[in-house]
Design a protein around this nucleic acid. Structure first.
Length: 995
DNA sequence: ATCGTGGCATA
DNA sequence: GTATGCCACGATG
């Protein structure tokens, strides 16, 4: 699946048009449009306008499109363009800065709402199939002057589309200007009106008067009026300056003499260069017909409804698909449509991002959800009608119903669509009927469309980049469709929208979102199934649900998804989360789909052998324990073990859990076994118990459980990655969880040998080294940490050395271990209690460590204090890429909860930034593998700081090079960390040896 | 059958 | 001290 936007698609089509060379000569009419000037003027002169769906500011783009269309199609035949080009400024530095460094130096940066519109206007020009010209080192005005002279030289006519006074010097026989916003011609008379002199003397006047906006100095005390008088009297600037002594007014005379040179400099700034060496020949500006699809696609994407319609009519194309959102079944005009139509009609009104958010939420909730209104689609004609409506709307909410929660095992049962709030349908495809009988159930099978026939109609819609597909956790639906050979192109995901906007503020599942944003309780699966929760569920899949209930349930999901999109999407721009969503969330979906689809090969026999070995050891350990205790008890019951150890045997150091049970956690039992007060039998019992727990854990969670996940068709395990599940931005893996496969102990590690590469392939593991500590060094700006990473030192040893004054050389391992624990503690938002627990030391000792640490690294304390302040003041923290993590309960009165939330808030930017970095690497990886021609390579797994690949033997070393490069540069170009990022990578036949 | 708890595997 | 997911137990419906 690709995430290519509709614009991209439309623009590619447009650029594909052949450029047409038409010689300019007598009878030609060249239109030169001052693109840069227009943008600024349109922005300030026209009412603000934002795209309804997401609040993107598009006022200048809209005005520009309107103007361009008018020029192309609505000019009088005698003035119709034969050639046209839109000219832009390129870069800030031009030859004028060489002459006069202060030229345009004090210009403020463009307003924020204008910035996204620059690239959009270039897109618009390409969509209209009009030439787009810019040249480094020159202003648009110089290019316009050059083209203008060339055209006139060969007898052509020129219209300069601009109202900028700086261009008025170009007016002459054959050259006029045109104010694109007021639709007014500017000729010799209009120039005289403005400057008091004819066009050929405009430069002289401007040289004297100067220009405060562009920082052209001129002569102080002389404005346009005076300058015009003087030029009119003396003829031109040189004559005036030569005869300045003759001027009667003493002030004026002195200034002109004193600032004569400054006036000459000003002239060189004001005088446009008309002999620029062009890269685009004037003949290449020949007017070409717009590419209808591309242009209408662009306009529709911009959501310019009236303009789209008008231009479609003008091009004789099919009536344009409006983006009208009609609420309810009857055709009503939506608030959005009113909004835009009113604006397009020229009346100013509030179109701020905030207004777009309010409008979206209002439409989403305007009409209560009515399940009885949904249509069950069982005929080809009705399905065609729904597909048509989806295309017309330009967007469609879509949801699949299947037999299984696991997308790779799921069989498609039906599809629901929604084209507007309340307007939704369900297309049953694989219902077996209430009996659910696979053999004799054909009689019960309800009448429905054949899946292949329906998918032949729906597939092209899903693959059409100009129709936005809206899903809730669309990863699932994408996988289901991928297995049927259909790729979803152009999509949004309401779960991910919510995750980007409201990470930490509640769940992002559909039921929670519907309740939160729509005040609606979704129908539960059990309700739809018509059985009490508790009835046997396994034989009741969605396929057995009667069509009427299935329609209510499924179409409601699509309806709710569409409404959620309307409520959430406009918030993206308003809350400045569009970049997070568009660079870290949405593009990850197709990557994860590919990884889940790929799976990883697992050797069933190795697991089975291990399972057997663990079982035998478990039996022996069990016998030993029973012998020591003297009677049988349930070893798997922590409650019984606690009672045995602390009630019956009265061992020391017992602690109770919050529910009053004895605590028997491994590190507590470890400490107990090390306690010299206990006797040998008790010590043996405890150690044997610990070993028993390890064996049973490995067996039940891994060697016994994993084989059941091996897919019969692929022989591989396909985990599921949850995208909106964690608060920090990490992924979560489940069914099975492949992010917690053992590695620390010898026995556990053996499980990794069962994860293997396919024949002729290798597994490659590439993992970030100390990524979180590097992020910490960057965000908290710690000189010693930065230096240590820059020099590639052992970071924990360096920490120990700084803290305890021990040289790194021959450092005792215990000293390094403590420093390591402290470093991790820092990342986790350290407390004396936690550190004491981790290191089995007293709280006082732990507290001293922390004090020492902060003395040596005061920047860390500053960072922690700043983070706490931030989260208390704003209720959220941010990662280095702007992902926001909310802590709505941070100001709770409960001190222990408050402490917990503060530690979480300290950890979140570190863990979350590391998560963002690996996300960026993953998003870029597929294209990087293609670029490196690594056709055999596939990315299989992500384990927070590690990526696992499978690749043909002969491409393994090249893959290591590429993967490392992508991972190590993943933060760029958005950010350059203050520390280097290091990735270790290794190839082997199994995951154990590759790590 | 479902839930909370304790325990434990990973980064 | 951070972030997860899954197992068994044992109480509950």
């Amino acid at each position: 699946m690709t995430t290519k936007s509709k614009q991209d698609h439309a623009i590619e089509q447009a650029s594909a048009a052949l450029s047409e060379n038409v010689p300019v000569g007598k009878g030609s009419h060249v239109y030169l449009i001052d693109g840069s000037g227009y943008i600024f003027r349109a922005f300030h002169a026209l009412p603000p306008l934002t795209r309804p769906s997401d609040g993107l500011p598009v006022g200048a783009v809209h005005g520009f499109c309107q103007m361009l269309w008018k020029l192309l199609r609505e000019t009088k035949a005698s003035e119709a363009p034969t050639h046209m080009g839109v000219i832009f400024d390129a870069g800030r530095e031009t030859f004028r800065n060489q002459i006069y460094p202060q030229y345009k130096a004090q210009r403020p940066p463009p307003p924020e709402e204008l910035i996204p519109q620059f690239p959009l206007i270039r897109d618009a020009v390409r969509a209209f199939n009009v030439a787009c010209v810019e040249l480094d080192g020159y202003e648009a005005d110089d290019l316009i002057a050059t083209y203008s002279r060339r055209a006139v030289d060969v007898g052509g006519d020129v219209t300069v589309v601009s109202s900028d006074k700086d261009l008025m010097q170009l007016v002459r026989p054959g050259v006029t200007m045109f104010d694109g916003m007021k639709s007014k011609r500017i000729g010799r008379d209009e120039v005289i009106e403005k400057f008091g002199v004819p066009p050929e003397k405009v430069v002289d006047v401007q040289s004297l008067a100067g220009d405060s906006v562009d920082n052209v100095p001129g002569v102080p005390g002389i404005g346009i009026k005076t300058a015009a008088e003087l030029i009119a009297a003396y003829g031109d600037l040189d004559t005036l300056l030569a005869r300045a002594g003759e001027i009667k007014q003493p002030k004026r005379r002195e200034k002109l003499i004193e600032f004569a040179e400054q006036a000459r400099i000003s002239r060189s700034l004001v005088l446009l260069k008309d002999d620029v060496v062009l890269e685009t020949a004037i003949d290449a500006l020949g007017v070409r017909d717009p590419q209808v699809d591309a242009l209408l696609g662009f306009l529709r994407m911009m959501e310019f409804n009236t303009l789209t319609k008008r231009i479609a009519e003008g091009l004789g194309a099919e009536a344009p698909p409006p983006l009208a959102v009609s609420v309810g079944a009857s055709v009503r005009v939506s608030p959005q449509q009113v909004n835009l139509d009113v604006i397009e009609a020229g009346a100013p009104q509030d179109a701020s991002p905030a207004a777009a958010v309010a409008a979206g939420a209002a439409i989403a909730r305007a009409q209560a959800i009515d399940r009885s209104k949904y249509e069950t689609v069982t005929t080809r004609a009705r399905l065609e009608e729904w597909v048509r409506r989806a295309r017309e709307a330009g967007r469609v909410a879509f949801d699949t119903e299947t037999t299984d929660l696991s997308a790779l095992d799921a069989e498609l049962v039906g599809i629901s669509l929604a084209v507007a709030p309340g307007e939704a349908c369900y297309i049953p495809l694989g219902h077996t009927g209430p009996s659910g009988d696979l053999f004799g159930g054909d009689d019960n099978r309800p009448q429905q469309l054949a899946a292949n026939e329906a998918l032949a109609l729906i597939g092209p819609l899903l693959e059409d980049p100009s129709v936005l597909k809206i899903g809730q956790n669309i990863k699932y639906d994408a996988l289901v469709m991928k297995r049927r050979g259909i790729e979803i192109v152009s999509f949004d995901d309401t779960m991910l929208l919510s995750y980007a906007l409201d990470g930490g503020r509640g769940q992002h599942g559909m039921d929670a979102l519907a309740e939160r944003h729509l005040g609606h309780m979704c129908m539960t699966f059990a309700q739809a199934m018509g059985h009490a929760p508790g009835a046997k569920k396994s034989d009741k899949t969605f396929a057995a649900m009667p069509l009427d209930k299935a329609t209510e349930y499924a179409a409601e999901d699509a309806d709710v998804t569409m409404r959620l999109w309307m409520a959430l999407k406009p918030r993206l721009a308003a809350e400045r989360m569009a970049t997070v969503y568009e660079t870290l969330e949405r593009p990850l979906v197709p990557v994860i789909v590919g990884m889940e689809h790929a799976g990883i090969k697992v050797d069933r026999d190795i697991l089975s052998r291990l399972s057997h070995a663990f079982a035998q050891r478990t039996v022996r350990l069990e016998e030993e324990i029973n012998g020591l205790v003297g009677h049988k008890f349930n070893l798997g019951s922590p409650k019984q073990l606690g009672e045995l150890l602390f009630d019956r045997l009265k061992l020391p150091g017992g602690k109770k859990t919050k529910s009053g049970q004895w605590e028997t956690r491994a590190n507590l039992l470890d400490d107990l076994a090390a306690n010299e007060e206990i006797d040998g039998d008790a010590r043996r019992l405890i150690n044997t118990m610990l070993e028993w727990r390890q064996m049973t854990k490995l067996k039940s969670t891994y060697t016994d459980a994993l084989p059941a996940y091996i897919n019969a068709e692929t022989g591989r395990i396909h985990t599921s990655y949850a995208l909106g599940a964690t608060t920090t931005g990490r992924l979560a893996s489940s069914d099975p969880n492949l992010q917690n496969i053992p590695i620390r102990t010898k026995e556990g590690r053996e499980i990794r040998t069962a994860f293997i590469a396919d024949k002729g392939m290798q597994l490659i593991s590439a993992d970030y080294s100390q990524i979180e500590l590097r992020v910490l060094a960057h965000v908290a700006d710690i000189p010693q940490l930065k230096k240590a990473f820059a020099e590639g030192l052992d970071i924990h040893a360096m920490t120990a050395s700084e803290m305890f004054g021990v040289p790194v050389k021959d450092m005792p391992s215990e000293v390094r271990r403590r420093a390591k624990a402290i470093n991790f503690g820092i990342i986790y938002g350290i407390s004396a209690f936690g550190l004491a627990n981790q290191l089995s030391i007293s709280r006082e000792e732990a507290s001293d460590y922390i004090k020492t640490y902060f003395q040596r690294f005061p920047g860390i304390r500053d960072y922690m204090d700043a983070t706490k302040k931030q989260v208390h003041a704003h209720g959220h923290v941010e990662t280095i890429f702007g992902r926001r993590i909310h802590y709505p309960e941070i100001n709770t009165k409960n001190p222990s909860m408050r402490g917990f939330l503060e530690r979480a808030a300290i950890n979140a930017p570190i863990q979350g930034s590391a998560a963002d970095i690996i996300r960026r690497a993953m998003i870029r990886m597929p294209a990087a593998l293609v670029d490196a021609k690594l056709s055999s390579a596939r990315m299989l797994l992500q384990v927070h700081d590690e990526l696992v690949f499978e690749v043909a033997d002969n491409e393994a070393s090249a893959l290591i090079t590429t993967a490392r490069r992508v991972m190590e540069t993943a933060a760029e170009p958005a950010l350059k960390l203050a520390v280097p990022i290091h990735v270790d990578a290794k190839a082997a036949n199994n995951w154990d040896e590759a790590h």
